[in-house]
C-alpha cells in the first residue's frame, strides 16, 4: 500500500491534522508539567472528566453537550490540585492522586445511584484518533490556537515559575495566577482532546515527548521544540506504522514515543560528554 493511497482516506487526513495539532500542544504543555512534577495531571483530570460526564449523562446531556458540565468541573478540579499543593503542602503526585480518585469514584457512584443511562458511559467518554469528524478538526485547531497563544504570552512567566517560584515572585511574576493558567490550559486540553483522541494518547503525549526532550535539550527553547517535534513525528509515523502493521493506532503512537525516548537516552550517553553531566 503506497503513501498516496493511505493519504487518500479523509479519516487519515483528519487523524494526521488533528493528531499533529494535539501532539504539539500536549508536548509543549508537557515540558512545563513534567518539570513542575505534575506529569500525571492528564490521567488525573481524565478521571475527573469521567465523573463529570456521569453527571452530564444523568441530565441527558450527550457528546458535545456533556462539555457544559465536564469543562467547568475539570477546570475547578485542576485548580483544586493546585490548591492542595499550595495549602496542604502535598506533593503534586499526591494531590493529583486525591483529585483523580475522587473523580473516578464520583463517576462510579453516580453511575450506580442513577440507575443506569440511555447509553454506555465509557464508550462515549473516549475518542479514537481514527474517528475524528471534520468539526472536531476545527475544535482541535481552535484549542491549538488558544493554548499556543496563551503559552506564548506567558512563556517567560511560565519559565520563571518552572525554574524557581521564589525567584519568580521576586521578579514580579504573579506565581499563583501563572500556575492557574498552566493547569487550566492543561484541563482545557485534556477535556477536549480526550473526546477526540482518547486519554491514553493524551497522557502519553503529555509525558513522553517532554522527558525525551529533557535528555537532549541544550536550552529551554530547544527543549520545547524537540518535544513538539517528537510529538508530531510520533503521530505521523504512528499512523503510517499502524497502517502497515495492522496494529491499533493510538497504542502504536505511544510505543513510537517510547522508542524515541530510548533513542534520546542513548544519544545523550553517546554525544554529551560525561563531564558535562553533573554527578548526583
Amino acid at each position: 500500500m503506497n503513501l498516496i493511497e493511505i493519504l487518500s482516506y479523509s479519516f487519515i487526513q483528519r487523524a494526521l491534522l488533528a493528531g499533529i495539532l494535539i501532539a504539539v500542544l500536549c508536548s509543549v504543555l508537557g515540558v512545563f508539567l513534567v518539570l513542575r512534577r505534575l506529569s500525571l495531571i492528564g490521567d488525573g483530570l481524565a478521571h475527573v472528566t469521567f465523573g463529570s460526564t456521569a453527571i452530564a449523562l444523568a441530565f441527558k446531556l450527550y457528546s458535545a453537550a456533556s462539555l457544559l458540565v465536564s469543562l467547568p468541573v475539570v477546570l475547578l478540579a485542576s485548580l483544586g490540585i493546585l490548591k492542595l499543593t499550595e495549602k496542604a503542602r502535598l506533593s503534586g503526585d499526591a494531590a493529583i492522586g486525591i483529585v483523580s480518585a475522587v473523580g473516578i469514584s464520583a463517576g462510579i457512584m453516580l453511575a450506580s445511584v442513577g440507575g443506569g443511562y440511555n447509553v454506555d458511559l465509557l464508550s462515549y467518554l473516549f475518542g479514537n484518533i481514527l474517528s475524528i469528524s471534520p468539526e472536531e478538526v476545527l475544535v482541535a485547531a481552535g484549542l491549538f490556537c488558544v493554548v499556543m497563544v496563551l503559552l506564548g504570552l506567558f512563556f517567560n512567566d511560565l519559565l520563571a515559575i518552572t525554574f524557581n517560584e521564589e525567584l519568580a515572585r521576586v521578579s514580579g511574576v504573579r506565581t499563583k495566577r501563572i500556575n492557574a493558567v498552566l493547569v487550566m490550559l492543561t484541563a482545557l486540553s485534556v477535556v477536549l482532546a480526550m473526546k477526540l483522541v482518547g486519554i491514553m494518547l493524551i497522557s502519553s503525549l503529555l509525558i513522553l515527548p517532554a522527558v525525551s526532550a529533557l535528555q537532549l535539550a541544550r536550552s529551554f527553547k530547544t527543549c520545547i521544540m524537540l518535544a513538539a517535534l517528537q510529538g508530531v513525528c510520533s503521530v505521523i509515523t504512528g499512523i503510517f506504522v499502524s497502517f502497515l502493521t495492522n496494529l491499533p493506532t493510538s497504542a502504536t503512537i505511544v510505543f513510537i514515543n517510547l522508542l524515541f525516548f530510548g533513542v534520546s537516552c542513548a544519544v545523550r550517553r553517546l554525544l554529551i560528554p560525561r563531564s558535562a553531566i553533573p554527578s548526583r
Binding site: 515540558v31 518539570l35 506564548g152 504570552l153 506567558f154 517567560n156 512567566d157 519559565l159 520563571a160 525554574f163 525567584l167 519568580a168 521576586v170 521578579s171 514580579g172 511574576v173 526532550a213 529533557l214 535539550a217 541544550r218 536550552s219 529551554f220 527553547k221 530547544t222 527543549c223 553533573p278 548526583r280
Partner: peptide
C-alpha cells in the same frame, strides 16, 4: 540538575521585573 535552561535564559528572567504583560 536536569533543568533544561541555559545561563542566558535564566539570567534573562531577571529582567521580567522591568516588564509589563506580555513580558
Amino acid at each position: 540538575p536536569v533543568f533544561p535552561a541555559t545561563v542566558a535564559e535564566i539570567v534573562g528572567l531577571g529582567l521580567l521585573s522591568l516588564k509589563r504583560f506580555p513580558r
